[in-house]
Write a protein that binds this DNA or RNA. Structure first.
Length: 471
DNA sequence: GCATGATCATGC
DNA sequence: GCATGATCATGC
C-alpha cells in the first residue's frame, strides 16, 4: 500500500483518510492484507497499522506527533428508526492517579493528545470482524476554545478528588464535557496511588480514563452529518452551529460553569411561582411540567430561546439533566422522581452494568431545582444545585438493574416482581404510560404495560437534605 | 400521610 | 404517535 500523505500536515492526513469513507478497512487496504492475528485487535490499531502504516506504540502522545493530530476511530450504532447514533463515550487516555495530579491541564496528556482529533466514524455490527465494518463519516475536530475552558474546569475537578485521596469517589456525573470513565477488565483490582505529599492514598480506586462524554460526541456526529461526512472543521461553525448560547466565553474565564448557571436562580430564591412569571414577563403553563418550564426560562435569563434550554449549545454538549423537585410544607417531596421507560429489549441484551442504559441515566449530571409549598398554598423557588449519584448508591443501583433484568427475562413484567417503593431500597418501578391501555411489545411475546425507573420519595428527600447541609 | 396505579400537556 | 417531565386519584 502506498501511504500517500504528509505526516506533518493535518490537512494532508485528513484528505488521505477520506479514502476510508464508504469502505471497510479491508476494502481500503486490499483483501488479504490484514493479518488475522492482528484482526482480533481494536479497529483503531488496525487502521494505524494497515491504512496509515504507523507502528503501534503505547506512548501517551498523539498518533501523528509531527502534525499534533490524534486518530480516534469511533463506532456508531444504528437505532430502530435507522438513524445513526454515538455508540459510546470516546476514551482518550488512561488516568494516572499518581502522576496526573501534578500536571496542569495545559500540559496534560488529554489536552496535548485530543485538542485536534481525526475521527473516522464507522458503523458497529455485532459479530462482524472489525476490519469488515464500514466507515461512514470522517471529521477533523479541533476542540473549540470555549469547550476547552469547560474541560479545564472538568479536569481540575477530577484532579482535585485525586489530590484529596478520593479517586474512588470520582463519578462521570461530576463533570460537564470531560469525563473520568471506568476503564479496565472485569475483575481488575483497584489501584493504589501516591498523593502530592508522598503519602499513599488510603483507599484504592478503580481504573479510569479521561473521556469525552457521549453527549459531547453526539454534537461532533451532528456536525459530521451536517457536512455530509466530508469532514473538515471550522471553529466558528462549531461555536455558532449549535443553537443559542447559555454562557459567554468570557464569563467562563472568571467563573465556573456551575456558578454561572446557579447564579441565575439566586435572585428568585424565596419567590412564588406566579411572581417569578410576572418578573420575567412570561405566561404560566397548564402542563404538569410547569415548574420545569419556568426553570428553563430562568436559566435562559428570560431570553427568547424557545421553550427548551436543552437546545442551547452547552446543554446539548453536556447532557445535563434538569429536574424539578416540589416539596410539601413539611419538606417531603410531593412526588417521587421518574425517569425514562424501561426498554425491555435493550435491558435483556445488557451484560455489563457499566454499559447499561440505567448506568448512563444514573451517572448523568443533574441540575435539581427545588420548589416548596408554603402555608398560603404558594409554591416558592427554594434553591438550585448540581448533583450526581454517589458511588455507594450506584452499588445499590446495580441490584435494582439486575432485579429488573431478571424479571423481564422471566416474563414477570409486573409490579409484584419489581422493587416497590415500600421496599425502601432507594429506587422502584412504576407505570408510565399514556393510560392503562398504553402497551409496548414484550420480548417474551405479546404486549405489556410500560414501566419506568423511579427514585423513591425518601431518596429524593435525602438528596435535598444533603444539599442543604453542604451549603 | 403514604404508596400505588393511572394519566396529562407539550413538543417534535 | 411517541417521548418527556411530570402530577393526579385512589385506597388503605
Amino acid at each position: 500500500m502506498n501511504y500517500d500523505y504528509d505526516k506533518t500536515d493535518k490537512w494532508s492526513i485528513l484528505e488521505y483518510s477520506k479514502k476510508l469513507l464508504g469502505k471497510t478497512l479491508e476494502e481500503a487496504v486490499g483483501k488479504g492484507v490484514i493479518n488475522p492475528v492482528h484482526g482480533k485487535g481494536q479497529l483503531g490499531q488496525l487502521v494505524e497499522m494497515y491504512f496509515f502504516g504507523i507502528e503501534n506504540n503505547n506512548r501517551q502522545e498523539a498518533d501523528f506527533p509531527e502534525a499534533g493530530l490524534e486518530l480516534k476511530v469511533t463506532p456508531l450504532k444504528e437505532l430502530k428508526d435507522r438513524t445513526l447514533a454515538i455508540k459510546e463515550r470516546l476514551v482518550c487516555t488512561m488516568i494516572d492517579f499518581t502522576e496526573d495530579q501534578k500536571i496542569p491541564f495545559e500540559r496534560s496528556h488529554i489536552y496535548l493528545k485530543c485538542a485536534f482529533m481525526l475521527i473516522p466514524f464507522y458503523l458497529h455490527k455485532e459479530g462482524v470482524p472489525v476490519y469488515q465494518l464500514k466507515f461512514i463519516y470522517d471529521v477533523l475536530w479541533q476542540i473549540p476554545e470555549k469547550d476547552l475552558l469547560i474541560m479545564k474546569q472538568d479536569y481540575e475537578k477530577i484532579v482535585a478528588k485525586i489530590r484529596a485521596g478520593k479517586a474512588h469517589e470520582i463519578s462521570e456525573g461530576d463533570t460537564t464535557y470531560l469525563g473520568a470513565c471506568r476503564k479496565g477488565q472485569k475483575g481488575d483490582a483497584d489501584v493504589y496511588y501516591t498523593l502530592l505529599d508522598g503519602s499513599k492514598a488510603e483507599i484504592p480506586a478503580p481504573k479510569r480514563a479521561f473521556s469525552l462524554k457521549p453527549q459531547y460526541m453526539r454534537t461532533i456526529l451532528e456536525f459530521a452529518k451536517k457536512t455530509g461526512g466530508q469532514g473538515t472543521y471550522n471553529t466558528s461553525a462549531l461555536v455558532h452551529g449549535y443553537g443559542p448560547h447559555l454562557i459567554r466565553e468570557n464569563d467562563l474565564k472568571k467563573k465556573s460553569f456551575e456558578t454561572i448557571l446557579l447564579e441565575r436562580f439566586e435572585p428568585f430564591y424565596g419567590t412564588p411561582y406566579q411572581e417569578i412569571l410576572d418578573l420575567i414577563g412570561k405566561e404560566g403553563s397548564k402542563a404538569k411540567s410547569k415548574y420545569y418550564l419556568v426553570a428553563n426560562e430562568i436559566l435562559t435569563k428570560g431570553e427568547t430561546l424557545g421553550k427548551d434550554v436543552l437546545k442551547s449549545e452547552e446543554f446539548q454538549k453536556s447532557g445535563i439533566v434538569i429536574k424539578t423537585i416540589r416539596l410539601t410544607k413539611s419538606g417531603r417531596p410531593a412526588e417521587a422522581m421518574s425517569f425514562e421507560n424501561i426498554n425491555y429489549f435493550d435491558i435483556l441484551q445488557e451484560d455489563d452494568w457499566y454499559e447499561s442504559r440505567l448506568y448512563d441515566i444514573f451517572t448523568q449530571r443533574f441540575l435539581f431545582i427545588v420548589f416548596q409549598e408554603d402555608e398560603d398554598g404558594n409554591t416558592l423557588l427554594k434553591k438550585a444545585f448540581f448533583w450526581t449519584m454517589p458511588a455507594k448508591d450506584l452499588d445499590d443501583a446495580v441490584l435494582y438493574w439486575s432485579n429488573i433484568k431478571s424479571a423481564v427475562k422471566d416474563n414477570h413484567i409486573a409490579p409484584e416482581y419489581f422493587y416497590r417503593e415500600s421496599d425502601h431500597k432507594k429506587f422502584h418501578v412504576r407505570p408510565k404510560g399514556k393510560n392503562a391501555s398504553d402497551l409496548t411489545a414484550n420480548p417474551n411475546g405479546g404486549f405489556v404495560k410500560k414501566y419506568c425507573y423511579w427514585f423513591n420519595h425518601d431518596y429524593v428527600r435525602a438528596i435535598v437534605d444533603n444539599a442543604e447541609l453542604s451549603d
